[in-house]
Amino acid sequence: MVEQLLAQGFIIGVLATSIRLTAPMLFAALGEMFAERAGVLNLGVEGIMLMGAYFAFWASFTSESPWLGLVAGMAIGGLMGLGMAFISVNLRANQGISGIGIYLLGWGLSSLFFRLTFGAISGVAGFQPVNIPILSAIPVLGPVLFQHNVVVYIALLLVPLSYVVLFKTTFGLSLRAVGENPEAADTMGIQVYLIQYVCVILGGILAGLAGAFLTVGQMNMFVDNITAGRGFIAIALVYFGRWSPYGILAGSFLFSIVDALQMWMQVIGFGVPYEVLVMQPYILTVLVLALAVGRSGGPAALSKPYVRGGT
């Protein structure tokens, strides 16, 4: 067993898969990071991902274009983000519970729509892996890093981009101010509600994109509850990554390596029961959540609705 685990092919397979699995986690977690940095805890990511996954599948199935699938996933994600923003910013609803509502809604609707429009399992072509010239021919590194579909690279590029937006732009400064101290931000002339709306909608768009990636970039099909908790794991990764893009990148890698490892162990068959393998990412997430606290507080005004002029 140890020999098999150390075989070069196995290691390359695990690493290549984990890079691919990182993409949806990055989309969802970076989006959630923006929402939380602006003070809104969006626990509906899982539900938004499920809707993004279904609509991306439907759009790319009917149009035969995976790109339109991504656009559809982002559109429904943005729409649900808008709803979440209205609920948490204007109606000041409890963000923990309303997120669970959005989750149930997205889970139910994606399953309902799928059964009504498709009925049975069907596939789409999805994005094909691209061999990057020269680089993909490098032994080991080539197959691990340079033979993925284009969306994977978009996800990886989003990390430095998010870093720049968050820490090097006025918009980033404003949204961090809103998440830390909305009263002070308001006094300084920052439009608190507008910033929160923009960030939650952005988070929704990225969550929709994450779901879309699952159906048109990874599995090339839709099944009920295709996310299987990944939306919630993405939120956990935001905590683990201490609300910073590179921290989230590290967390996504860690999670994806464990996930890829258990998938490959299923394929090869080590005699470890399937359920025990599938359990590993969830156990890891519980550990991550237990270990991530106490190190850093996160945005001070997180999940506290802001009332202009005080309560």
């Binding site: 609920i87 609803a93 309303s98 509502g101 889970w107 399953s111 009504l116």
Partner: peptide, 23 residues
């Protein structure tokens, strides 16, 4: 033949509406 997933959606909406009307 309408999938029971409809009930999950309705339950989700109930949760959202109940917490939203608490204001």
């Amino acid at each position: 033949g309408i999938p029971a997933g409809l009930v999950n959606s309705i339950q989700g909406l109930v949760v959202v509406f109940v917490v939203s009307t608490e204001i």
